[in-house]
Design a protein around this nucleic acid. Structure first.
Length: 491
DNA sequence: GTCGGAACAT
DNA sequence: ATGTTCCGAC
């Protein structure tokens, strides 16, 4: 049944440029990560059309309620070409997000979940406002309103030669009036429909039944609607696609890496999130609303282009901290480290400090002893800290987070960065992103601390090592015994 | 309903 | 890695 489910091939890597695999894993790329559920949820949440299916919970930050589980499941199933999808399965996927701290359940409220916006989206969706009745219908976390008024400076477009279908056409940003009707829940996906490219799924989702039916015939060109954030002249060459121009400077036809502010919703990427020190919202955890206007400006700019792409790959942005569409991009892409993160020395966090005997502990290529057991033998976690974290979490979950999500105390090990005259904001931000991975790492450990040891183990075994597990030469496959390990740790 | 383990798929 | 599918337990 998958035959019909077309996916957009990943861009051909011409020009000899090689991008890391993850870079291709945009929403529509083949493979396991076409689109992530949380992402999809966010999209639905964003659209007025689906208000009756899923909607933000008024008054609860990041909380949403699935009003029609079956329909959501159906939409998800259609999106993923899983006709057998149902709420039971979908919710299972949702539950996996608990551990990742992307979501959690709102206890006692059926079909109600809550995004962990404070830690996740907040710093990455600076442009989304909660405007339940606004044009951006279903909103998102309440962020400083500056975001909504921000406008993009002209970007330097490169000429994308092969855009493929406008797979990320701005349909998700359609104004509510565009497609008011819900698709007929009964309507089955017909082959022709399934043949549609990823670009069409939105249209399909959004389209009223008759329109969708029409789509089954000769493919009519989707009416591309300008996104909210799009402005005339923004991308003169491709006025109707906000994604026509890659934020990545000058890489025509190679890869229009979608830059996404959504980014680090996966644990793996947490550490790469814009550091709190870099983001005005950074603070995600703490004094979120007191930010330096300059920083704000720079930050907004650096993320500007990501914004209308925010529903693209959540993986892109954080790893390309240096290639954000620049006011001025001093470092040519090819000179930038492809995997800047991996080059970063382990943060000097508490745990790492313990084991960091040598100051240069970052690269241990010469080390003959990888000492893998260290990871397996999870020492009893720091009780106090864990307790504290647990308390914090309980507070959050059980007290319905009456403590504002933003009020979370985060003791950053970094210092606020003075605006550097002479260097662009991006530069600043980016540099910090490079130089100060520690804070993110610290947060990582906090997150880990929040987690039961078993889960922590799991995360690590799942490759979610991050700073906890420095890049070490590991014997092939030997460590890949997650279940065994989990079991072992259980007994 | 909700949860999470397990096996499996992509 | 991120689900999907199934399922027993609560």
């Amino acid at each position: 049944m998958k035959a019909g489910c077309s996916i957009v091939d990943k861009p051909e890597g011409g020009g000899g440029y090689h991008f890391p695999e993850w870079a291709y894993k945009t929403e529509s790329s083949p493979g396991s990560r076409q689109i992530q559920l949380w992402h999809f949820i966010l999209e639905l949440l964003q659209k007025e059309e689906f208000r009756h299916v899923i909607a933000w919970q008024q008054g609860e930050y990041g909380e949403f309620v699935i009003k029609d589980p079956d329909e959501v499941a159906r939409l998800w199933g259609r999106r993923k070409c899983k006709p057998q999808m149902n709420y039971d399965k979908l919710s299972r996927a949702l539950r996996y997000y608990y551990n990742k701290r992307i979501l959690h359940k709102t206890k006692g409220k059926r079909f109600t979940y809550k995004f962990n916006f404070n830690k996740l989206v907040m710093p990455n969706y600076p442009f989304i406002n909660i405007r339940p009745n606004g044009v951006v219908p279903q909103s998102a976390p309440p962020v400083p309103t500056a975001s909504s008024r921000f406008h993009f400076p002209p970007l330097e477009p490169h000429s994308p030669t092969e855009e493929g279908p406008g797979r990320f056409a701005a349909a998700s940003l359609l104004p509510p009036h565009a497609e008011p009707a819900l698709p007929d829940p009964e309507r089955k996906a017909e082959p022709a429909e399934l043949e549609e490219s990823a670009a069409d799924w939105r249209r399909e989702l959004l389209a009223p039944p008759h329109a969708a039916a029409a789509a089954a015939g000769p493919k009519r060109k989707p009416e591309v609607v300008l996104p909210l954030f799009s402005r005339p002249g923004m991308f003169p060459e491709h006025p109707h696609s906000p994604f026509a121009v890659s934020p990545l400077p000058g890489r025509p036809g190679v890869l229009n890496v979608p830059i996404s502010p959504a980014l680090s919703l996966t644990p793996t990427l947490f550490s790469y999130s814009p550091s709190p020190g870099l983001s005005p919202f950074a603070a995600a955890g703490s004094s979120c609303f007191s930010f330096n206007p300059e920083e704000m400006k720079h930050y907004l700019h650096s993320q500007a282009c990501s914004v209308f792409n925010y529903h693209l790959s959540p993986r892109t942005f954080p790893r390309y901290p240096l290639v954000v569409p620049p006011l001025q991009c001093p470092v040519p892409l090819e000179e930038q480290p492809q995997f800047p993160i991996k080059l970063q020395p382990p943060p000097a966090g508490r745990k790492n400090r313990e084991r960091l005997e040598s100051p240069e502990g970052g690269t241990n290529s010469g080390n003959s002893k990888p000492e893998p057991p260290r990871v397996k033998v999870e020492p009893a976690p720091d009780k106090e800290e864990e307790e504290a974290e647990k308390r914090e979490e309980e507070e959050e979950e059980e007290e319905e987070e009456k403590a504002a999500v933003f009020a979370r105390p985060a003791a950053p090990a970094w210092a606020p960065v003075p605006a550097q005259p002479g260097s662009s904001g991006e530069e600043n931000v980016e540099k910090q992103a490079r130089d100060c991975p520690g804070d993110a790492a610290a947060q990582e450990r906090r997150e880990d601390a929040l987690m039961p040891p078993k889960l922590r183990l799991k995360r690590r075994w799942n490759g979610d090592s991050r700073q906890e597990m420095p890049e070490e030469p590991r014997p092939n496959g030997i460590w890949h015994l997650p279940k065994a390990v989990a079991a072992a740790s259980d007994t």
